[in-house]
């Protein structure tokens, strides 16, 4: 068999594949590049639709992808610089100098997928990288960074003792730096969130709520503002039929199904 005709047939097959994909593929931004345009061909390698907010870039690969270097933060910052709403809030203020986007903001996941996936390991990696980002080894920030890295190195060998749900890399993060405002324990459990919480969800799988017979509700639960300033005696305790109840005796009136499920009264929502 001669190979040249085979090669021609192969090229014809590829052309046919291209045409069929070109005609079948959806174009979320509503337009279709001409057959001979570069993007029409580049889009054949597109690993999925962009999210709704980015779909106007469907036919402009170079808007985000620098050739060979990939998705550079600079390409994102062109549009996303100075986002006051993000930079002013404590939980998101870290964006100001993170200089790294695609680690957590992954695209091409589909039109209706949110292109954000928090990755604490990536955050730790970025932080470590930034410590020594100044190329001048004698510069002040680099000296501090190097020193800090040595410190991390010594501590990393200790593993994740006492922090069961963290990876070794996540151990160097300071939860409170971003989540400080979120502490529902009012600092009573200290700053070391990871002693109980993991880095994926705030809920603690091992946590079992005490049984309904427990009398210690007030150890963790605080009464709402509406239970103070006379309301409690005038309305709450009266409605529940427990005129002598104290505010910290939750169990006298409330049940574990819902705070509004009042004993012997049923569903009661005053406000």
């Amino acid at each position: 068999m001669k190979l040249w005709p085979g090669l021609l047939m192969a090229l014809a097959t590829i052309a046919a594949l291209f045409v069929s994909f070109y005609l079948l593929r959806s174009h979320p931004d509503g337009k279709r590049a001409a057959v001979l345009e570069k993007t029409a061909w580049q889009r054949m390698a597109s690993p999925g639709d962009l999210s709704i907010a980015h779909r106007f870039l469907e036919h402009n690969c170079a808007a985000c992808h620098t050739s060979v270097k990939g998705v550079e933060p600079a390409n994102c910052i062109v549009c996303h610089a100075n986002n006051a709403a993000v930079l002013q809030r404590q939980p998101t203020a870290f964006h100001a100098d993170i200089s790294s986007c695609s680690e957590c903001h992954r695209e091409h996941r589909g039109l209706h997928e949110r292109p954000t996936q928090m990755d604490h390991t990536a955050l730790s990696r970025i932080g470590k990288r930034q410590l020594i980002s100044n190329p001048d080894p004698e510069s002040e920030d680099r000296l501090i960074g190097d020193y800090f890295q040595n410190w991390i190195k010594q501590h990393e060998s200790k593993g994740t003792a006492g922090h069961p749900d963290l990876t070794a890399q996540e151990m160097i993060l300071d939860c409170a730096a971003c989540h400080g405002n979120k502490d529902r324990h009012f600092g009573l459990f200290g700053q070391d969130c990871a002693q109980c919480h993991g880095s994926v969800a705030w809920t603690i799988p091992e946590f079992r709520h005490p049984p309904p017979t427990s009398l210690d509700c007030a150890q963790c639960h605080q009464a709402p503002p509406s239970h103070y300033m006379g309301h409690f005696k005038m309305i709450s305790a009266t409605v529940a039929g427990k005129p002598h109840a104290r505010v910290d005796q939750c169990f006298l009136c409330h049940q574990t199904t819902s705070w509004n499920d009042i004993k012997n009264v049923g569903w009661y929502k005053h406000h």
Partner: peptide, 18 residues
């Protein structure tokens, strides 16, 4: 080959400060 912190670690020992 996204640069990871670990990759840089190896070089820091040569550049620690005065």
């Amino acid at each position: 080959f996204e640069p990871s912190g670990g990759a840089h670690f190896a070089t820091t020992s040569q550049t620690v400060d005065p």
